[in-house]
Structure formats: C-alpha cells, structure tokens
C-alpha cells in the first residue's frame, strides 16, 4: 500500500485542509471542465507544499547548526545545508522503518501510514529543535500538534459530510 494514496493522494496536510475548508466556507468549488483542459482529481497545492517544506527546511537548518556548533564552532554554518539534508534522511528513514514495522505488527492500519510518517517526522524534528534550542522549534511543534489533532477531526468532519449528503 502506498503511503500517500490514502491521505487524499496528495501532499495535503490536515492543517491546510482545515484552512481551505474554513476559508471556502464548507467546501472548495468544483473546477468546471474546460475544453482542452484535463484537470487532476487530486492535484494538491503547491503553495501549501512549498510553505511547509520551507518551514521544515528552516527547522532542520536550525537543528543542524546547533548540533554542529559545539564541535565545529563557526564552521558549522559551512556544513549547515549538507548537515540538514543528512538529518532529513535520518528522520525520514527512521519513520518509514517504524511505519513498516508497526504495519507488519498490525498496529498501524495502512491508511494511517502517510499521516504517521508526516507527524512522526515533524515531531522528531520538533523534539530535536527543543533539545538543541533551535529558534523554530516552538512554531514547528505547534504545527505538529495541530496536525496530529487535525487529522482525526478532519476524518470526523468528512464522515459527517458524507452522512449529511
């Protein structure tokens, strides 16, 4: 089962789903079929993805610099970007591995894997930020908490919507 097939098949976080839902007062308007255009069913939002990715990138940079400052001093800034890239893979691989194990053990239903990877990676990044005193740790932690709460709430909303329809 693909991780992202279930979470709407698009890189849409629950936080942004709620923002879009509230901003459009209950639902996004359908895109009319225009001749010569073939709209995607679930394209997702580039703005959202880049916004979250930028935040995560800054948080990773903060953690990488803090961790390398002690042994390297000012040279830490030189290795900040590759260090952050390595950290990203460490966090990412760890949560994919944990997700795989949890799924095989029957603890994690396949539809929840994408959320598990996303929230897990975000949470470990926030924790690393808090431990190292990185500047973006608290806003990032807030995002992760909202994300962890928003996903189940969103599911409830969807079920309510479907029952009401």
């Amino acid at each position: 089962m693909r991780a992202d097939e279930v979470f709407d098949g698009t890189p849409r976080s629950a936080t942004f789903w709620w923002i879009a839902k509230l901003a459009s007062a209950g639902g996004a308007p359908p895109r009319p079929g225009v001749e010569g255009e073939l709209p995607a069913a679930r394209r997702g939002s580039g703005v959202e993805t880049y916004a979250l990715s930028s935040l995560a990138g800054l948080a990773l940079l903060g953690v990488a610099v803090r961790w390398m400052e002690a042994p390297l001093g000012g040279w830490a800034w030189l290795f900040a970007v590759p260090g952050a890239f390595v950290l990203l893979h460490i966090f990412g691989f760890s949560w994919v591995g944990l997700g795989e194990l949890a799924q095989r053990a029957g603890l994690l239903p396949p539809p929840a894997r994408a959320s598990f990877h996303g929230v897990g990676t975000g949470a470990s990044l926030a924790l690393a930020g808090l431990l190292s005193g990185a500047p973006l740790a608290y806003p990032w932690l807030a995002f992760v908490v909202v994300e962890a709460l928003a996903w189940p709430l969103r599911k409830i909303w969807q079920i309510t919507d479907e029952e009401g329809a």
Binding site: P11, S54, G92, V96, H117, G118
Partner: peptide, 15 residues
C-alpha cells in the same frame, strides 16, 4: 516518492 510525506517533497527534490 512512495514513502515521503508530500510536504517534504521539495526538500528531497531540491537536495
């Protein structure tokens, strides 16, 4: 691509 959370995709692609 199959396992990456979508919101981290630009970081992986860029890196």
């Amino acid at each position: 691509v199959r396992h990456c959370p979508g919101w981290l995709e630009p970081l992986f692609v860029g890196g």
